[in-house]
Design a protein around this nucleic acid. Structure first.
Lengths: 193, 193
DNA sequence: ACCACAGTGGACCGACCGGTCCAGAAAACC
DNA sequence: GGTTTTCTGGACCGGTCGGTCCACTGTGGT
């Protein structure tokens, strides 16, 4: 599929329009017609740019959203080299998900696309990148002598990822960020020893 | 709706059949026809016993599954009064979700029922009961002088709940229990101080 | 200017699925 | 044993939604 300038623009408009729609509303089920209406396109365009249909489109949107997740934590996530930096990171995560509220674009996408290999791949990639950043942060703190060397950086980083995921999930049910804050604070406190 | 003995049996058969179906397969979308086929009933029966249709049925199944979640952790969860007990509990949680694998009956249910008040209520109730058990366990350990008093039992209990949720969610994407183990171990270690 | 191909609109289709309806079988109750 | 209520089967309906098709319009290269 060779895309002209106009074609690339349309394709991008579809992805970003769909992503924006997911972020604003939280429809249990997102249909192609919804996206068609929101992005001001027609059915044939969707299938023109995403021959794989719904799954291919949703996967593209999911990747787009996954990128946002990490971007929204920058620059804090990339430089966890002091306790102050960890606090700022913690605050940015809490703020991001508090703002997002009960809506979880990625969650909705995954719910629709289901358990296809592609969906798992998107999530796994995101989680492993995320965890790598945290692990590096812990390593930096250890190198600076701020965190004890006996601590297994990879294991604690994994705990952070799981904790954040769970905190967000609880947020979606209860509407409160208390659990997210609790798990982040507890784990940071554990780092502090 | 007055139910006879036979009626109660049929109603129960529908719920348990649906629950078993969810546990075995992990269909992205469960239809009433699936349940009808599995449980050997007819459409009219489903609507006879669950006048609210799909949502009422799925909520009933979700409550049934939610009960199982806590039951499967007993008796360990109810008596977290020694480090050995905490370890046994940790193992039972890991074992339970390792066995469950990528399937998450409750998750599927929630995905289908969506964000209705009823769905939130089921999840919130489960989480708060779960958290209460953990909090009591921490309190018991403090009373026994095994955990420092300065630790906020409620906050750490919330962290456990969030961590487990997240660990299970990661399990669904990656298929591995490493994150679940990491977060449980890290938090228990934090308790140990 | 022409032509090949990308881009676009929208009617249409077929499958699926939640839900309705009614008629008949089976209990339960007197 | 008769009648009233519950239980059961399954045909049917109407809406929804992913996906197809085809005709038409732009666009870019030569």
């Amino acid at each position: 599929m060779a895309l002209t300038t106009k074609g690339r623009a349309t394709r991008q408009r579809i992805i970003e329009g769909a992503a924006a729609y997911l972020r604003s509303d939280e429809p249990a089920g997102v249909t192609l017609d919804d996206i068609r209406a929101i992005t001001g396109t027609s059915k044939s365009q969707i299938f023109h740019y995403f021959p794989g249909g719904k799954e291919e489109l949703f996967l593209a949107v999911a990747r787009h959203e996954a990128d946002r997740v990490l971007d929204d934590q920058q620059p804090h996530l990339g430089a966890l080299t002091s306790w102050a930096a960890w606090d700022r990171w913690r605050d940015s995560v809490v703020a991001r998900y508090r703002a997002q509220g009960r809506h979880c674009p990625l969650g909705t996408l995954m719910g629709q696309v289901g358990s296809t290999p592609g969906a798992h791949e998107v999530v796994s990639t995101l989680l492993s990148q995320w965890q790598a950043h945290v692990r590096k942060g812990i390593g930096d703190m250890q190198a600076a002598g701020l965190v004890r060397e006996s601590l297994d950086a990879d294991r604690v980083a994994a705990a952070f990822i799981a904790g954040i995921q769970g905190g967000v999930q609880v947020l979606m049910s209860t509407g409160g960020v208390a659990h997210l804050e609790a798990v982040l604070d507890t784990l940071v406190e554990h780092l502090r020893g």
